[in-house]
Computed example of a mutant assay.
Amino acid sequence: MSACSTCAYPSHTQFASPELIGAIVSGRFDRAQDPAWRTSGAATAQEYARWCGHLCGATCLRMALGDEAPSLFELRDGALKFGAYTVDVDGEIHGMIYAPAAAYLREVHGVDAQVHRELTTGGIGELLDAGRLVLASVHYSIRRPDEPAPGRGGHLVLVTARTPDGAGFHFHNPSGTDAATRTAALPVERFGAYFAGRGLSLTPAAGA
């Protein structure tokens, strides 16, 4: 995995303190104690702790929308109104759901967005070549690319460009545990080991 030195999009994380992500995702640190939780836009530390683990998709949207994007929880609120996140009767959070997320992007942010229920890594490359960004469903363990991929899907990353040699993808990972895994690149074949074959593409935000 190598960092992208020329990425045009900001790198954001779904957890407010990037330096604590490793401890948070491993369970060694209580996310409700994150000292930077207020920067997320959450109303309380408890709201932040309940939601932050589910907001990889909203974080990808925040990165794609560029430097003028709303806060993470403002995006969460907007996505909720469109049904891109749902909360069931038992309080379990579901999402991001692609179709309402695409509608939210189009209607609120004026961004062309398209759902791809069946998508190959070759298709990702074609979308990038057409000037689009891709929210790709991958396994969260993509932050450990030197280990065998234990599965596919369940987490979203923002794929921003091909690597200069055309053999890999640059992407931003909202739950990367260090700088090299938050703004990263992998060969297409290795990326494909984590990729679930679905996603959402969008036009870059103006000025991003």
Rank of each mutant, 00 (worst) to 15 (best):
P18W: 12
G197Y: 06
A43G: 08
S71K: 15
P174L: 09
E74K: 13
L65C: 07
T160I: 06
A23S: 15
G151M: 10
A130T: 00
E118T: 12
T86V: 13
W37G: 08
G123L: 12
G131D: 11
P204F: 09
E118N: 02
S175G: 12
A84F: 02
L186Q: 13
M63H: 02
W37P: 00
P204V: 07
L200Q: 05
D146T: 11
G22A: 14
F171Y: 15
S141D: 13
R144V: 02
V108K: 11
G153A: 08
L20M: 10
R31V: 15
A36Y: 01
A180I: 01
F195S: 10
V25G: 06
S11R: 05
S5V: 14
A79D: 06
G41C: 07
C60G: 10
E107F: 00
A185I: 00
L65E: 06
E126Y: 01
E107D: 15
L119G: 01
A3Y: 01
Y140I: 05
Q114H: 13
T121K: 03
G27L: 05
T203S: 15
C60I: 06
F191G: 05
A102K: 10
M96F: 02
H116M: 04
K81T: 12
F29P: 03
P10H: 10
I93C: 12
L80D: 08
V108S: 14
A149I: 03
R62D: 08
I21N: 08
V89Y: 03
G125H: 05
S71A: 11
P204Q: 04
T203E: 14
I124F: 02
R76L: 15
C7L: 08
A185G: 13
G153N: 10
Y9N: 04
E118R: 15
Y85I: 03
G66E: 04
R38I: 05
H116G: 01
T203A: 14
D77C: 03
